[in-house]
Design a protein around this nucleic acid. Structure first.
Lengths: 232, 232
DNA sequence: GGCACTAAATGAATGCCATTCATTTAGAGT
DNA sequence: ACTCTAAATGAATGGCATTCATTTAGTGCC
């Protein structure tokens, strides 16, 4: 191919980092939903959800922002991809070989831990249909199967899971709360019962406050739900 | 005061709706945190949280957007004002004259109902210190007092409330979820246990699915937490 | 083996959004 | 009366998600 009249750069000198790729479809695809998902995850782990912008994601992938829209319809789509990807990390294995109450405990703890790192996804998960979220469906199938084998009647399974999930999502927020969230400040004199209860926590050892509340609530829920089983 | 040379408009003709107020401090203050709060609430009830922008809020109050910043430091401040305002709507009255378990039930149901209409505030509440949120502190004081009188040891009060709150916030999201949220779609054959559990809900009468799960979980929590009391 | 179609990139533009700043005016305190 | 500060305007800023025209490359069809 002879050099065109417009070819006034030496061909061996690459462009400076911004826009190294020339216009038009590249020989092999740079993007797909998979690479977008892991890039988003990587970006979040470095900069947090504040740093997850379409522009930053594009920069991270060395691509123009508009290129992302060939693979997702919106930023919400990216969040959905993340949600499904992360749900695969939730450990449901205990439903296969442990008693129901132990399995629920392990699943719930794992579920909370995964999404405590990703609370901005919670509003998305809680409201969005599960259709076309294969990993999420796989988790529900494993959990539903565990409940059924533990003797839950069909019509109690979904409500029980929903109740547990509600508690799990709320508890995930809790993990990220600052330690002094309950400091009554100058209002302390007006709130003696509350203030006294807060102060009594000061010398709790080992566990974070969020863990104490999580264990307390989860134990109560498991005990209560267990009564719905046909046999125990 | 004689008409200045620049006064070339008839004084009786008011300006068209945009910018009816002239530059400079008005004779009496137009804004304060109270009017901003109720305006925000009004705006939300008309347009939802998507419609709550600083510009829209300013337009609603017939004020320049920058004027808001004389009274709040950021949009987050507006959300905090909303949160405290709404917390005052949560009904804690049952703690004064009903048995503990009934009071918890009434409080939790009321709390969930208030914030089911305002789920965008949940991430804010769950993470933000309670200092200088007087209504919120008042609610906690009423609840803590109810727990103490019911025989809870001091160090169990806050964890119990936190566990309940986690469940309540999660359940508030649940209220807003679409009815078909659990439709497995084309994945149904791969998820038989889950799909069967979902179908068994089809002919549940009376209650919304969210209410069934809420009642189920709340009853379990109340029963479980009740065991922490010194006497019952 | 050419040809139309479609997929996947760029880069420029759009409109919205929260926030800031210089400026103006009015009241409050000394 | 004078100064200080509070509370408004209006113009500007920078970041954001998203859209569109354009360019190029592979794919399926006759």
């Amino acid at each position: 191919m002879p050099a065109s009249a417009a070819d006034h750069h030496s061909p061996t000198v690459p462009r400076r980092t911004p826009s190294r790729r020339r216009v038009g479809r590249p020989p092999s695809a740079v993007l797909d939903q998979g690479v977008i998902t892991v890039a988003a995850l990587d970006l979040i782990s470095r900069k947090g959800y504040e740093g997850l912008t379409m522009a930053a994601l594009a920069r991270f992938l060395d691509v123009a922002p508009s290129a992302l829209y060939n693979h997702v319809n919106s930023k919400m789509d990216v969040l959905l991809l993340l949600e499904d990807h992360l749900t695969a990390r939730v450990d449901v294995s205990a439903f296969a070989d442990r008693p129901w109450d132990e399995a629920v405990y392990a699943w719930a703890a794992s579920y909370r831990d995964v999404f405590a790192q990703h609370t901005p996804l919670i509003p998305v998960i809680a409201v969005l249909p599960v259709t076309n979220a294969p990993q999420t469906l796989a988790m529900y199938e494993a959990v539903a199967s565990g409940f059924r084998h533990a003797g839950f009647p069909d019509e109690k399974i979904i409500p029980s899971i929903v109740a547990l999930e509600s508690f799990i999502f709320g508890s995930a927020y809790d993990v990220t709360a600052p330690a002094d969230i309950f400091d009554p400040g100058s209002m302390a004199p007006a709130t003696p019962n509350f203030t006294s209860a807060v102060h009594s926590l000061k010398n709790e050892e080992h566990s974070r406050p969020a863990d104490i509340a999580f264990t307390l609530g989860l134990d109560a829920l498991i005990a209560g739900l267990s009564k719905l089983r046909r046999f125990s």
